[in-house]
Structures are given as C-alpha cells and as structure tokens.
C-alpha cells in the first residue's frame, strides 16, 4: 500500500477570506492557503468554490490555472455541486503531477459525476449516500456497489473511485461512529480506496479539542483501512499522527527524521 493521502481542505468558500478572494478574483489569500497546505504535506489541494451558479465555470478555470501555474501543477480536487464548473476545471487541468479528483459523486442525483470521471480519466470521490445520511451500513454498501458497478461499466479503474462512508459529527451522532469505522473496514476488504471529510467528526467542539479528536479518529480509521482524507494539513498533531500511522502500517520506511518529511 502507498502512503496515506491528505487532501488539503483549507481553500473553501465557507471561509470569509476565501469567499471574498473568490468573488474578487484576488490570488493573494488563495495562494497563501495553498502554499501553507503544500508545505505542511498535503498531496492534493481541494478547491471548494461553493455552488457558484452564475460564474462557476469561469471561476473554476481561473482557480485551477492559478494554483497549477504557481505550484508546479499541484494535483487538485475540484469541489462543487456545480457539475458544469467541475467539467470546465477538468478541461484546463494539467495532470502531469496527478489525476484530477472530482469531489464528489453520490448514488443519487450526483451519480452522473462518475460518468464525468470516466470520460475525463479522473478520480472520483464517491459518497455512499443517496439523499442525506445513510441509515446503516447495509445502505452504505448498497450505494457503494451501485456506484462501483456504474464506474466499472464505464471502464473506470476501481482504484480511481475513492469511497466516502460519510464521517459524522460526534456531538449529536456519537452512537454512529463505530459504524462508520466498520463501513471503512467493509469497503477496504473489497480492496477499494476510501476517503472522507475528517473534520466533520469534531465539528462544534472547542478549538483546542479538535486536533486531538481528529487525530484519534484518523488513527482508528487508518487501522480500518482508510487510504485518504479531506483534512487540515496545517494541523500538526493530525499530520504527525498520520505519518506515524503510515510507519506502523508499513506504508513508509521509518527513519528518525520521518516527521520532518
């Protein structure tokens, strides 16, 4: 197995700084956030431009080119519910450093994003849900199968479908956490890649608690087979945990300076 993959989550329209920069096409704040995430060890950068209904296509192309030109064609995850904007981004994407990620498809109305991934030879994050949160793991696995079959029937390499069991917020859904871990285990046993929005887990917790909870969750999820996550690479505790788990899982070779790499 390869190293765990961190998709940096910090270019997100929910942040006021980024939202303003997106609407004003101001490269400064976007480049700063990309730089700090790459330096912190993110292999992919997620770009969430929001629904961007009026100008999504132009906006996605602008940000894809901006980031790839400034950071040696850093691989990106194109994150919006606006499929047209994703497709526009794919058209200008340079894949010399890695395939683009489509974030995301599901088993419901966004299942056609799998078709787009097949057409553009992209990786797709496949949410194991149809509408809202799946009731249980039977439902999760059903959606997983549906999406897998659709991708494979279109000629996709199953390893390019990264299945997301949906991480759930602990404050409110504490009793569901082990089920999510079991889902990761079930999907991993099929030899498939998995991913998820890790920060959901600690949503609403005090700021100083979040890195602790996220780190504990990632360690347990990696033991269940999780191969990537959309997470905050600037969280030092989290990155140290991931690097240590990669050593324990024999994904990377130990050296005394492994945390500095």
């Amino acid at each position: 197995m390869g190293k765990f993959i961190v998709i940096g989550e910090r270019i997100h329209c929910i942040s006021p700084v980024i939202r303003k920069a997106l609407s004003e096409r101001d490269p400064g704040p976007i480049l700063r956030r990309a730089k700090e995430q790459i330096e912190a060890g993110a292999q992919y950068i997620d770009v969430n431009i929001g629904p961007a209904e009026s100008d999504g296509e132009e906006l996605m192309q602008w940000i894809v080119k901006l980031l790839q030109e400034n950071f040696d064609n850093v691989p990106l995850s194109l994150d919006t519910v606006n499929s047209k904007a994703i497709e526009a981004g794919l058209k200008v994407y340079d894949r010399s450093k890695g395939k683009p990620i489509i974030n995301s498809a599901n088993a419901g109305d966004r299942i056609t994003n799998i078709d787009m991934a097949a057409e553009y030879d992209a990786i797709v994050l496949a949410l194991c849900s149809k509408e809202g949160i799946p009731a249980d793991n039977d439902e999760r696995m059903l959606y997983c199968q549906e999406m897998l079959e659709r991708g494979m029937s279109l000629g996709m390499d199953p390893m390019d479908m990264w299945f997301d069991p949906l991480f759930l917020v602990i404050k409110g859904m504490q009793d569901k956490q082990t089920e999510v871990l079991e889902a990761i285990n079930l999907i991993s046993q099929m030899g498939l890649n998995t991913t998820g929005g890790l920060s959901n887990v600690s949503n609403g917790m005090p700021k100083h608690i979040r890195p602790i909870m996220d780190s504990a969750m990632i360690a347990m999820a990696m033991q269940c087979g999780l191969t990537s996550a959309i997470a905050n690479p600037c969280d030092q505790r989290l990155m140290e945990t991931i690097k240590s788990c990669d050593i324990i899982k024999n994904n990377t070779l130990y050296a005394d300076s492994y945390l500095e790499l």
Binding site: L253, Y254, A255, D256, S257, E260, L261
Partner: peptide, 14 residues
Amino acid sequence: DINLAKQLNILLNQ
C-alpha cells in the same frame, strides 16, 4: 541498516 540508510539521505538533504 535500512532505516539509517534513509536517515543519512535525509540528513544530507537537510
């Protein structure tokens, strides 16, 4: 020593 082999490369690189 495989771990030291890697470590020495890291140290020289640093």
